[in-house]
Design a binder for these strands. Sequence first.
DNA 1: CATCAAAGCATAACAATGCCATGTATTGTC
DNA 2: GACAATACATGGCATTGTTATGCTTTGATG
Lengths: 208, 208
Amino acid sequence: MVRTKDPAVRALLIRRAAGMLSAREPVTLRSLVAGTGVSTMAVYTYFGGMSGLWRAVRQEGFTRLAAALDAVGETADPVRDLAALGAAYVANAKANPDLYRVMFDAGFDLEDPAAADATLQALVDAVTRAKARGRFSAHVDAAGLATQSWTIGHGLASLVIHGPLPAEAFGHAIPMLTALFTAAGDEPARARRSIRKGWVLEHAPRHD
Amino acid sequence: MVRTKDPAVRALLIRRAAGMLSAREPVTLRSLVAGTGVSTMAVYTYFGGMSGLWRAVRQEGFTRLAAALDAVGETADPVRDLAALGAAYVANAKANPDLYRVMFDAGFDLEDPAAADATLQALVDAVTRAKARGRFSAHVDAAGLATQSWTIGHGLASLVIHGPLPAEAFGHAIPMLTALFTAAGDEPARARRSIRKGWVLEHAPRHD
DNA sequence: CATCAAAGCATAACAATGCCATGTATTGTC
DNA sequence: GACAATACATGGCATTGTTATGCTTTGATG
């Protein structure tokens, strides 16, 4: 072997693609490499083509999402944390709608499927902690409840980002999560309080 | 005026596009008109271009969805009906995944936005009937609860169709709807029974 | 019924796209 | 220091959506 790929170039292209996505500029093979000094063939050596680039961009989206969820952290109130994770998920999607769209596009062939699982795992952990603290019933299926929470977050994010629902519809998450967590065994008033505390749609970092 | 467009050609192209979508054949301007006898210009006279065609296909998707929901009908148990509407929605998406993907793609500029509202209206009506029958509390926001039900259906459909969740995940709808309707005032056991009765993922008609 | 203008439609050319074949330059290995 | 494998630049290829240019059709008008 004689010449090695430069990981910086790879990262640059991914970042640039995500940036052009946020800027709503059309991301074509030629426009992507324009001004970067690298030639069009770089996309083929690093990603095998445009579809490979999109795969990498999807991957990057999940990586950034995982980072956003990781930043939520844990408190003594796992139900609040669960709502906070949902809020972070939705806020991330809202701040980067085009990247979010690409993430769930064209099947689901990621380079590293574990990145998507990491998203779910943060929720599973919070549910497990809620069970340990007695907030949720012991025979709650943690993975199942986490998936259901994900469904709510993704459903709202998708319907808002794609247009059918206005941004205010994100507020529906509060009664929905309350109903879900109450069914899981939490006391209704307590669940509502925790969720309201956790559901803060603050400004998520815009990836560009 | 001298020459009038033939609505049959328009319908043919839309149907053919939907069919090629289901068959997973690439829908290009030339492949679309190949063998139909019409020339490529027809796409421009009828739809103004490919993006107009996709708009029409989206519209058609919502029309067919509305028909599927309309076929559900009403029984004496509105909660069962609500679950049946959700099941029909998900079954339609599952039977026509590519059409469903197109429906929620590229913004939400439909020719007739009312078609999407009709989807929601069926749910609103069922919620209203549930309130009238005393199954749901009188101060339940019908439009809100309908939107929340839609969010669950769309969230599951989207996550399954795009790959992250397996088809079995549709089953999550049952506990989710149960939680939601219980929070709306229905008795838990009764809600569960109605939902299990209504949630039948029978074979939806495949549009091709 | 004849006329005519406007709309539909066919053909072909256009720019732009993703992709790839060919040749050159680079660099780690022996 | 020579070699070979890899990155990379150039340019061409087929295909895409779009549109310019006429030709054909046809319905309203007299």
